[in-house]
Amino acid sequence: MIGRFLAGLKEDKRIWGQRVAGQGVVVPPVGYSETDGSAGGDWVEVKPTGVVTAVARVHRPIPHLHPCAEPFAFVLVKLDGADTALAHVVRDHLEQLRIGSRVEAVWAPDAERHGSIRDIACFRVIS
């Protein structure tokens, strides 16, 4: 399940969730329900846009751990069509970022997508 989700990022720049008992549409999917352990159901494509539900601003990134050397923010993003939030980062226009901000996925270039959650390079604020 994780492998197919990542293949969607890498090959199609599309984000897929999975309908899961007790959790709704889970993004990113793990293939089962974390609440009751039942198998994941249908794939549901979600939008690359969504709303920020939590923000942690990192002013001093930790080398070899954090994804970039400049200040950035970790965010939880509830993508449009999803019922759970995805953990990711926002790198630009941090002054506009707050809980409730609308953001959209910024894709890594074709040659730099290797089948990882970081095939989404980051999210950017759109409103």
Binding site: G3, R4, A7, D12, W16, G115
Partner: peptide, 10 residues
């Protein structure tokens, strides 16, 4: 659904 051929390793 996403591509049938999964990414195999992370």
């Amino acid at each position: 659904g996403p591509p049938k051929e999964p990414v195999k390793y992370v």
